[in-house]
Design a protein around this nucleic acid. Structure first.
Lengths: 235, 235
DNA sequence: AACAATTTTTAGCCTTACCTAAAAATTGTT
DNA sequence: AACAATTTTTAGGTAAGGCTAAAAATTGTT
C-alpha cells in the first residue's frame, strides 16, 4: 500500500526525507524561533506562510508525528533536534544557491530570493557539498546572512543594527534585515553595499534619523533604513 | 475559487506554467515521439513513466484541455506546438544542468541524471539563460545529447550507432543511447569516452560483435555495446 | 470569578495526481 | 464477419495539502 510517490518526483524512487511543504514549515519555524525565542504560535506561522491557521494545525500534527517538532495543542510549537537539523540544511542550501546566483551567474542581490526558494529543495548531499566547495566555502550569503557549514554550525554572528550604533561609532556593513527588492534597491541607489565602512556622525533625536559617512560621502538616513541594515562594529 | 498554489511552491505566487507532473509527461511524450514517430500510445507512456494506463488517460485529458497535446480517445497522443516548446525547454534545462554538474562540480557522467531530473523543473528564464552563458553555450550534454538553444532549436545531429559502421569505417564517439550507470561505467572501465576516435577493424558475422581500435588500443565489443554508442562518422 | 475577545482546533470539502476494478473500444485471428 | 485478446477509458477511491465555518480552549478585563 506504500505509495512510491515522493516530494519532488513522480517517477524515481529517490524517496527520502521531507516534502517541499514540510521543509518550508521547518524553515519558517526556525526563523520565527530566532525572532522571539520560545514557542512559535499557530497564527504567527500562518501569517508568515501566507496560509490559514487550520492548515498550520494540520501540518504541525504531521511534523509532530515525524518527531520534527515539539507540539502541544494550543501551546505553540518548537523544533526538535531533528527538525532543527533539517531546517538548517534547507537554509544552508538556500544561502549557498544565492551565492552561486550572484557570484557566478550575474544576478543582483535583490533577484535571487525566489529562485533560491526553489533550489533549496533539491535533494542531493553531494550536490550541496560540491557547490559549497565550488564557491570556496562562503561564510555569508549576498545579504550578509551566515551560511551554516556541512555539520549545521553557523560560524559567524557579531552583527548589530546600524540604528544601535552610538554617535561616533563605526562599522562594516555585513547584512540586511529586510530583503525586499525595494530596500535592496534603495541601498544600491545610495551606494551602500556589504563590506563598506560606515560611521555615525550625528543622531537626530526627534526622528532618530542618522547622519552617516559612508566611504567618504555624507548621507542622511531615516530610522526605518538604519533599523534594517546590520553592521559589524569596528574596534 | 482560484487556488494560489502552484507546482513547486506553496508560499509564493510565482504561479506560472506547468506542474512538475505535467512537465514530466510532456518530456516523456517528446522522447517517445522520437523513437517511433507517429502518435504515442497510452500504454507506452504508462510504461515509460512507471505509472498506470488509467493515470495516463487522466493526465492526457488535462494536457489536452490546456492545448499541450493533440489527443483523441483510443488514438494515442501527439505534442502540439505549444507542448513541443514546453518539452524542449525542460530538456534544455536538464541537459544544461548535467553539463554544470560534470564540468563545474566534479560529477561523473553516470551520477548526474537524477539530480538534473530535479533541477530541470526550476522556473526562471533568466536562470536558464545565465547558466547557458556561464557554461559557454555547450552544444552537447555529458552523454552527447544535443542541447537546444534558447529558441528551442537543436543545432546538431549527424550521429549513427557504432553498430552501423561498416568494416574499415571510423567515427568520433559523440553520445550514448543507454545512459544507465552500468553502461557508462563499462565505457569508463574500457577507456571509451566522448570525443575519442574509433575504427571498426572487423565484424564477427556470427554474433555481430566488433573488433575495434580505440585510441590505438584493440578492443572486442559485443553487439549490445556497439548498439548503444553513437559516433559521428568521419570522412 | 465570570464573561468577552482572541486564538486554536476540529469537521467537512476541494484539487492534484495517483490507484484498482470494471466497462468499452480497438485489433488480430480465424 | 465474429469473437477473443488487448488496449484504453470510466468510475470510484486514496493521500497530501490546501480551504471555510463552527466548536473549543485560552487570554484579558472587569
Amino acid at each position: 500500500m506504500m505509495n512510491k510517490k515522493c516530494s519532488f518526483d513522480t517517477r524515481k524512487n529517490i524517496a527520502f526525507m521531507f516534502s517541499l511543504s514540510e521543509e518550508n514549515y521547518l524553515k519558517t519555524i526556525f526563523h520565527l524561533e530566532k525572532i522571539n525565542s520560545g514557542g512559535v504560535s499557530t497564527n504567527a506561522l500562518a501569517g508568515e506562510m501566507e496560509t490559514k491557521a487550520s492548515s498550520v494545525t494540520d501540518m504541525l500534527k504531521k511534523l509532530s508525528e515525524k518527531k520534527l517538532v515539539k507540539y502541544r495543542k494550543y501551546q505553540g510549537v518548537q523544533l526538535s533536534d531533528k527538525g532543527h537539523k533539517a531546517a538548517v540544511e534547507v537554509i544552508r542550501k538556500h544561502r549557498l544557491w544565492e551565492v552561486f546566483l550572484v557570484e557566478k551567474l550575474n544576478f543582483s542581490w535583490d533577484e535571487v530570493h525566489d529562485i533560491a526558494e526553489q533550489l533549496e529543495h533539491i535533494k542531493s548531499e553531494k550536490l550541496t557539498q560540491e557547490l559549497d566547495k565550488f564557491l570556496e566555502f562562503p561564510k555569508r550569503d549576498p545579504h550578509g546572512d551566515p551560511i551554516p557549514d556541512a555539520e549545521g554550525n553557523f560560524r559567524i554572528a557579531n552583527k548589530v543594527l546600524l540604528a544601535d550604533l552610538e554617535e561616533g561609532e563605526s562599522g562594516i556593513c555585513v547584512g540586511v534585515k529586510d530583503s525586499s527588492t525595494e530596500f535592496l534597491q534603495y541601498l544600491d541607489k545610495n551606494n551602500i553595499a556589504l563590506g563598506k565602512s560606515v560611521t555615525v556622525v550625528h543622531r537626530e533625536a526627534y526622528d532618530e534619523s542618522l547622519f552617516i559617512k559612508i566611504n567618504d560621502e555624507d548621507l542622511h538616513v531615516s530610522k526605518s533604513i538604519s533599523n534594517n541594515l546590520f553592521v559589524k562594529p569596528v574596534e
